[in-house]
C-alpha cells in the first residue's frame, strides 16, 4: 500500500492514490493537482444523500471526504514510513451540502516525528462558502 502511494507521488498522479482504496471508490472520490495543491473531489451520487427532503448530503459522507482529503494531502506533502492512522477528527458542519460535487483541500499545519495535524476545508460551488471544515491528528512515523 505504501509502495503504491510512493509510486503515485513519484509519478505526480494523485488519482492513483485512490484507485487501490475500495471505500474511496464507494464514495466516488478523485484526486487532482490544482496549481500545485492536492484537491480531493467527491462526485455527487444519490447514495450519498442523508436528507432526501432537502436534499442534502449525509454528514458522514462529508466527514469521510474530509478525513480522506486530509490523509491524501498528508501523503502528498510528507515523507512517512507508515500509512497515517487517524487519531482524532473534529468536523464542523457549516452549511448544508446540496446534491452536487464537493471538493476538499487539506493543509498540514504541524508535522512532527510521530504526529501530524491537518486542517481541511470542503466546499461545493464557491470556495469562500465552506460547507464543512475539520481538524485531524494522525499518527505517522518520520525518520530523524
Amino acid at each position: 500500500m505504501l509502495g503504491h502511494i510512493l509510486a503515485a507521488r513519484a509519478a505526480g498522479e494523485p488519482d492513483r492514490l485512490l484507485a487501490a482504496i475500495p471505500y474511496a471508490q464507494f464514495l466516488g472520490l478523485s484526486a487532482s493537482l490544482d496549481s500545485g495543491e492536492l484537491l480531493t473531489t467527491m462526485r455527487y451520487a444519490p447514495h450519498l444523500v442523508g436528507n432526501p427532503a432537502l436534499p442534502a448530503l449525509h454528514g458522514g459522507t462529508l466527514g469521510a471526504l474530509l478525513e480522506s482529503a486530509a490523509v491524501f494531502s498528508l501523503l502528498w506533502a510528507a515523507e512517512t514510513a507508515v500509512l497515517p492512522k487517524t487519531i482524532t477528527i473534529t468536523v464542523d458542519y457549516l452549511r448544508s451540502a446540496g446534491p452536487k460535487d464537493t471538493h476538499a483541500r487539506g493543509l498540514v499545519t504541524r508535522l512532527g516525528r510521530r504526529v501530524a495535524a491537518v486542517r481541511v476545508d470542503a466546499w461545493q460551488d464557491d470556495r469562500t462558502q465552506l460547507c464543512a471544515t475539520a481538524t485531524a491528528h494522525f499518527l505517522i512515523k518520520r525518520e530523524g
Binding site: 475500495p22 471505500y23 454528514g59 458522514g60 466527514g63 469521510a64 471526504l65 487517524t86
Partner: peptide
C-alpha cells in the same frame, strides 16, 4: 469489502465508522 480503507489488511475505512456514528 466496498467499505475497506486498506485492501492489504481488509480494515474498514475510518470514514465508514464516521458515517455510522453520525447516523
Amino acid at each position: 469489502a466496498k467499505l475497506v480503507g486498506n485492501p492489504e489488511t481488509g480494515v474498514l475505512h475510518g470514514g465508514a465508522i464516521t458515517a455510522l456514528l453520525d447516523a
